[in-house]
Simulated scan of single mutants.
Amino acid sequence: MSNLNDLSVLPLPAGPALNADESESRLSLTLEGESLIRLRLERGDELQVHLQEAGSVPAARALWAACYWLFAKEPARQHLTWYLEHAPDDALRSGLLVATPTPGQFRCERTLFWQLPQPWLGQPLSGAYPQQMKISDGKRHPVRAPKPRGEVYRRFDARLGAWVSLRTVEIDVDLARFNRWQNSARVVHFWQEGGSLEQHREYLDKLDADPHALTLIGCFDDEPFAYFEAYWAKEDRIAPFYDAGDYDRGIHMLVGEEHHRGPHKVASWMSALVHYLFLDDPRTQRVVAEPRADNAKMIGHMQNQCFHCEKEFDFPHKRAALMILGRERFFERCGLV
């Protein structure tokens, strides 16, 4: 675990890293050796941020970088108060900055900042796909966007000091590890999907052909450690058990590598997985899950990430706990760094 007070470099998904020269009252950020922004800071109940270059209009990406740095250093900080003669129009249109009644004063809200999709997403948003309703297997739901291929999410977790990323399953590449993970005694107990390579290829092929499901591999520093299934709840078997929204997403989760278990790792990958699903389509208002009701450890991890247990119910194959996390709750209590 890294000490955020010692943070001096913050890598970005596209490759370059933010470098900082910071004191109690000053912050200078550089990117690829070039000065990005220089700030004067006034700390207190509010963190007030002033440009050192009076009268200049910084680029929106420089403002974004400074907000990212300051929020990463202080995960409990809910907003930043900026003092600028002028704010870039694109910073205001995106929600990065919000004007206040005081001339020259703007705010950056953590709840809005972490809803900005870039640079975390590696694919175009599903939310750009137009809505058209259809009926399949007796369920009315939106037509889903074509599924992405490759890496879909990447973020440097400053608390862990490691990259957390998500990519789609490549069956030929991932089949052997998926088979090994599913056949471990711990996973078989909860997933009940142990089997041969051929059975697991058939399992993954079926999901790959299913437009409502997306299979993902979770990685720390590009090392695969977990398998996730994300699904559209409206056309899933969970839909009859609660009032599923058109864009609710559901998740199944499996950590396969023993050395990547532990509460601090769960907090990192689970928040990344949920973050990705909320960013992928801004119409998604809830992420749901249905772990076995007796899986107290997973339920506890989910509650630590602000999920709540709505109820228990009976699937044909298990007694399940309905776990729900709303978009508003996730971003209001967002602990991402």
Rank of each mutant, 00 (worst) to 15 (best):
R177Q: 14
L277C: 04
C67E: 11
A321K: 01
G138N: 08
P119Q: 11
L322A: 12
E328C: 04
P263R: 05
H212A: 12
E310K: 03
P240D: 02
W181Y: 10
L96M: 03
P101T: 00
F71H: 02
A289H: 07
P16A: 09
H259Q: 10
L36G: 04
R329T: 13
R144W: 14
P263W: 04
L116G: 06
R155T: 06
W114I: 13
L29G: 15
G95I: 14
I171S: 08
M253C: 03
P291L: 14
A17K: 11
R177C: 02
T168A: 01
P142S: 14
V337Q: 01
V274K: 05
C67A: 08
A14P: 00
L214Y: 01
N183K: 02
A76E: 07
H275I: 00
Q132M: 04
A59F: 12
E235V: 15
R38M: 01
C334A: 05
D45E: 12
L39P: 06
V187C: 05
L47M: 06
E332K: 14
R155E: 08
R286C: 12
A230K: 12
I135F: 00
M133E: 11
P88I: 11
H259C: 09
A128T: 12
C67P: 01
L204N: 01
N5R: 14
H264Y: 11
V57A: 04
